[in-house]
């Protein structure tokens, strides 16, 4: 059977030249990887219609890589879905389409713009952040495709509400998370049964930190969108964040656009995701930068978390990722 794991969608899984670990010891990244693979297989086996959520960011890039580890030489037992706010970085869309094509998997794109055009959600205007609006599009897509499990790349170290969330997180028929009524989740017994209309969110990267993600990207040689590495970009400083000047972000009164050397720590809606000043052009340099950082990932880059003390919890209660 050794010849069976052949080159799959451009990823060399050659049995003779692969990493081919023969060691009997298991390090920290091996355990995280193994556990994530275990979770994906459980979710795929226990749910009727799972889907993997893919934004093109680093966490979902790791998720796709882990899905290949879990299910090759077979195809993925789920499609890949992107919730598209319409406020994208070109580099990320290009990366998304290429990665999914390389893997030979099916991509579903659910567009916030379609939800606006259909009158499902009010039009906030062309330049407003659509981060929160994604929730309506996501819930509509879940219901249209009858998905009962959404595998996402959220990590517990990102936010104090996420720190509280189970690996399998239950959502009611309205897509809501109720933090006071989470299911007990003991050992590795992930129990994912839901009733019709309800669904699960599954987070295989729950125990990974930002640093773990980068160390794993380094070890596995996972390709990421170029905006994660230092590049020259025209930005405007707003509320202490560097926003890329684009068709949706123009300098306002008193603001000036300047060209800076920056990179992104997270990838989201372009109108609310900030860049950080950085000279890191390699994964190793990014790892050094992340290890020394005194500001959290979302604190540095996400305007959407600054609305209130419990912004993430409030969004999750509405059905957000």
């Amino acid at each position: 059977m050794t010849s069976a794991m052949e080159t799959v969608g451009g990823e060399t899984a050659d049995m003779t030249t692969g990493r081919g670990r023969q060691s009997t010891s298991v390090d920290h990244l091996d355990l995280l990887e193994s556990h994530a693979v275990f979770i994906m297989r459980e979710v795929a086996a226990e749910s009727e219609r799972p889907v993997l959520l893919f934004s093109g960011g680093k966490d979902s890039a790791v998720l796709l890589h882990l899905a290949a580890k879990a299910f090759r030489p077979g195809g993925f037992p789920f499609p890949v879905m992107h919730i598209d706010t319409g406020h994208n970085f070109d580099e990320v869309l290009e990366y998304r389409d290429r990665r999914v094509a390389e893997l030979g998997e099916r991509l579903i794109v659910a567009r916030v713009q379609d939800s606006i055009d259909q009158g499902r959600i009010p039009d906030p205007g062309p330049n407003a952040s659509r981060n929160r609006l994604q929730t309506a599009t996501l819930l509509d897509a879940i219901s249209a495709h009858s998905f009962d499990a959404c595998i996402g790349g959220a990590r517990r170290d990102e936010d104090k509400a996420r720190a509280k969330e189970r690996v399998l997180s239950f959502r009611n028929a309205f897509g809501q998370w109720d933090p006071k009524r989470q299911r007990p989740e003991l050992w590795q017994l992930y129990q994912g049964k839901v009733q019709s209309g309800e669904h699960l969110r599954a987070f295989p990267l729950s125990d990974w930190t930002e640093l773990d993600i980068w160390q794993y990207v380094h070890r596995e040689g996972i390709e990421l969108p170029s905006i994660y590495f230092a590049h020259r970009r025209k930005v405007v400083e707003r509320d202490g964040m560097l926003l890329a000047v684009s068709e949706w972000v123009e300098p306002g009164p008193g603001e000036t656009a300047v060209e800076e050397t920056v990179r992104y720590r997270t990838v989201g809606d372009a109108t609310c995701t900030g860049a950080v000043r950085s000279e890191a052009v390699t994964v190793a340099q990014v790892i050094a930068e992340v290890a020394a950082s005194r500001i959290s990932e979302r604190g540095a880059t996400r305007a959407d978390d600054r609305f209130s003390e419990t912004a993430m919890e409030d969004r999750k209660r509405e059905g957000y990722f």
Partner: peptide, 22 residues
């Protein structure tokens, strides 16, 4: 007969590792 992961074959799989076996 064989133990493998995506990355190749193993002679021995330690506790805690996700693998597949033939």
């Amino acid at each position: 007969s064989t133990i493998e992961t995506f990355d190749g074959q193993l002679e021995e799989a330690p506790v805690g590792l996700s693998v597949s076996v033939h």
